[in-house]
């Protein structure tokens, strides 16, 4: 097992502006096999310039890894303007100690990311596999699609311990999302597969859904185009089961919405 600790230098956050650093080049699969000098020389984008990782982060390495699965990257320091943590990652583990900026775990294919704080928008965008755990809140567009795509998340598992913003899992086609708090407007919009569980409240969940399943355990404000089917029991709890969204026409309305 190898642990690579990357601590953002304070100087990066001291200018008049908070220009974000993009760390999509810093995933376990890409860093595996590099020694400390090589790690420090990996290029990352900071605004319109490429910089050495070692110039933006304090880098330390402990232990050895036999493959990418055995690499763990720990991000420390003020990460609120560090974008794309674990973007496209295929294996290994990332731990982000603090609130992270946009697109954390976007396009993720495998491995595990733990965010020990809040995640800004588009965490888990178009996620394909692996696990993403956000211990705080997630902002809008969690696990949504890229603009214009008709497929968002297709696999993997995401857990948010806090609340989630708007449009959780838009165009979701597979995988699982668990929100322990509330989900803001339109969770599961255009959903076609997979499962979203919201343990607290939701507004307009499942609009335009054509497949997949949404369970809301708290209060639900529904859109007016779902059809009540029956009372159903999920994990021992009784729910009203609706089918929808009929706004899409009967042939396509194959989504399931369970509400209290």
């Amino acid at each position: 097992m190898q642990t690579i600790t990357l601590k953002l230098k304070e100087a990066v956050r001291s200018g008049i502006a908070a220009v974000p650093v993009e760390v999509d080049a810093l995933t376990p699969d890409q860093l595996f096999g590099k020694n400390e000098a090589e790690l420090k020389a990996v290029k990352v984008w900071w605004g319109n310039r490429e910089e050495n990782t070692g110039d933006l982060f304090d880098v330390s390495v402990e232990g050895d890894a036999g493959n990418a699965e055995e690499v763990k990257i720990v991000f420390e320091g003020d990460l609120t303007r560090v974008k794309r943590i674990g973007d496209g990652m295929k294996a290994g583990e990332i731990e982000a100690r603090g609130d992270v900026d946009m697109r954390c775990g976007a396009m993720m294919e495998g491995g595990k990311i733990v965010v020990k704080g809040n995640a800004n928008c588009w965490a888990g965008r178009e996620m394909r596999g692996g696990e993403l755990i956000i211990e705080g809140d997630a902002e809008d567009n969690l696990c949504a699609m890229y603009r214009g795509e008709d497929k968002g998340m297709t696999g993997g598992k995401v857990t948010v311990n806090g609340n989630a913003g708007e449009l959780v899992g838009q165009y979701m086609a597979g995988g699982e999302i668990l929100i322990k708090g509330n989900a803001d407007r339109l969770a599961g919009l255009n959903m076609r597969g997979g499962k979203i569980t919201i343990e607290s409240d939701a507004q307009w969940p499942g609009s335009d859904m054509t497949g997949g399943e949404i369970v809301v355990k708290g209060e639900t404000e529904m859109t007016p185009s779902f059809k009540f089917v029956e009372t159903a029991t999920v994990d021992g709890v009784e729910y009203k089961k609706y089918l929808g969204d009929l706004a899409m026409g009967e042939k396509k309305a194959k989504g399931t919405l369970h509400v209290k």
Binding site: W204, S207, P224, S225, K227, E250
Partner: peptide, 17 residues
């Protein structure tokens, strides 16, 4: 938003819901 959804459901022949 829900007003549009309702109109769509009606135009799709589902005014019952």
């Amino acid at each position: 938003y829900p007003v549009f959804s309702a109109l769509r459901a009606i135009l799709q022949g589902h005014e019952d819901v």
